[in-house]
Design a binder for these strands. Structure first.
Lengths: 246, 246
DNA sequence: TAAATTGTGTCGGATAGCGAACAAAACATT
DNA sequence: AATGTTTTGTTCGCTATCCGACACAATTTA
């Protein structure tokens, strides 16, 4: 399987080969835990499909998603920056696949290769700035706007118009009650923007769903696009898209 | 004036001299804007006192603070990681002083010196993880808990038991109405934890104020402390505390 | 001293989302 | 077809916070 991870694609053939040679392709089954708060993880992941949620859990069990990572980035990037224990959890929200690499190997590459470091830091920047936008969004915007934003972001990330997720899990991501999600998702469905049944949400009218989302969607999309544009540009320069991946 | 910025202190004398030689000591007057959303800033700042708020502003004018930076870090760190335009604003929330350095110079040092890069990335990690915690806190915790958390964080950052800030600005930081701040601050005052008058908040009983804050305070404090411990350790190794700063 | 500005207190009506409990579908398993 | 599990729908009282409006107090400026 070729590494259809944008970050890997953007690397020069040498750097990419180096990382790929030290990676193992693995499946990302639903709910698989990729790292746990305050524990040093053994591996990082370059997703090639699917979606991993980064979640903060409170002592009382309440949770809220602060970001997610798909094929545009790397799971575990923040662990490379310093010694701190990371207070977030990460698990697979929509199943897929990834290239799995030991944190030690990745950290070595991060420190020794300027190119690899730059690409990872670009992704760190995108992730961190997205978290900042979500931090304010969580405070200032209503459930319905945030649900619409989440659906749009997930669609951008997975390129699929059907998202497999229950209202129960959506509530945990949005930091709301399941019943609140039922209400606001029902409103979006009655408006004809989406359609859902038992854990399968289909986006019917993207354009109008965007009008239901808060502006944060556009801000985050812009961050994502500049990263992608950058990555695609680098990939082209490196001939990745022509030469194939390994 | 010696650079009493912890990040600078933690550097080897050579690296510190290099950065200090390219810096200018400046005052940080109240409300001074350090950078603006979607604009490439010309300078970064190593605060030696005072406190700078990092704020996300929405199109309707609503605002919420996502983090702040004091003498433990550097303002503008996220601009070093990649090309993206940063969607946050930054301004001086409590007056102080800083060493001001051109972003170009700092970026050069960031790229060429492994030591400088490592220290800055540690600070980036601390800032980003704090933002993640605040993102969830903004969603899951109540105004009074978040106000208590903010006051404690600000005191840790400034080492002063009197904070100069109005309820109006506190509301903008917490993403609430000013009247809500009046109510919850009034409750904290009646409990005897704090005392305030016209923009001056005095913390009377830190221990009990901590019980009024949400757990996020402890999580963030832990991040801050590990950074500080690390920095203090490096400073000792480098002899900074013995030799003085320049 | 007067006037203007800034910061705080309060009040009452409105509302989004919580919390809990229950009901009813849709699906899986046998 | 029967049964159990998962997912979704609904109701209703309740509370934190919003929202607007206004009064008042403290401080600065004229």
């Amino acid at each position: 399987m070729s590494p259809e991870n944008f970050l890997l694609f953007a690397l020069s053939p040498e750097s990419r080969k180096f990382l790929v040679s030290r990676s193992t392709p693995v499946a990302l089954p639903l709910r698989k835990v990729l790292y746990v708060a305050n524990e040093t993880p053994t591996h990082a992941y370059f997703p090639t499909s699917g979606l991993a949620s980064i979640v903060t859990s409170m002592v009382d069990g309440a949770t809220a998603e602060v970001n997610f990572v798909g094929r545009e980035g790397v799971v575990g990037a923040f662990h490379l920056l310093g010694p701190a224990e990371v207070p977030t959890n990460c698990f697979v929200q929509m199943e897929g696949a990834a290239l799995k690499i030991s944190i030690v190997d990745l950290k070595m590459a991060f420190e020794e290769s300027e190119e690899i470091r730059q690409r990872i830091l670009e992704n760190v920047q995108e992730q961190a700035l997205t978290v900042a936008q979500i931090a304010a969004c969580n405070r200032l915007h209503e459930s319905q706007e945030r649900l619409a934003r989440w659906l749009l972001m997930a669609q951008d990330c997975t390129q699929s118009d059907v998202l497999n997720i229950t209202q129960e899990f959506l509530a945990e991501m949005l930091g709301s009650r399941r019943t609140t999600v039922t209400v606001v998702a029902g409103a979006l469905q009655r408006s004809g923007y989406i359609e859902y049944r038992r854990g399968h949400i289909k986006i019917l009218d993207r354009k109008r769903l965007e009008t239901a989302a808060c502006d944060c969607y556009r801000v985050i999309k812009h961050l994502y696009d500049s990263l992608y544009k950058d990555v695609a540009g680098a990939a082209l320069r490196n001939g990745a898209l022509r030469n194939g991946a390994h």
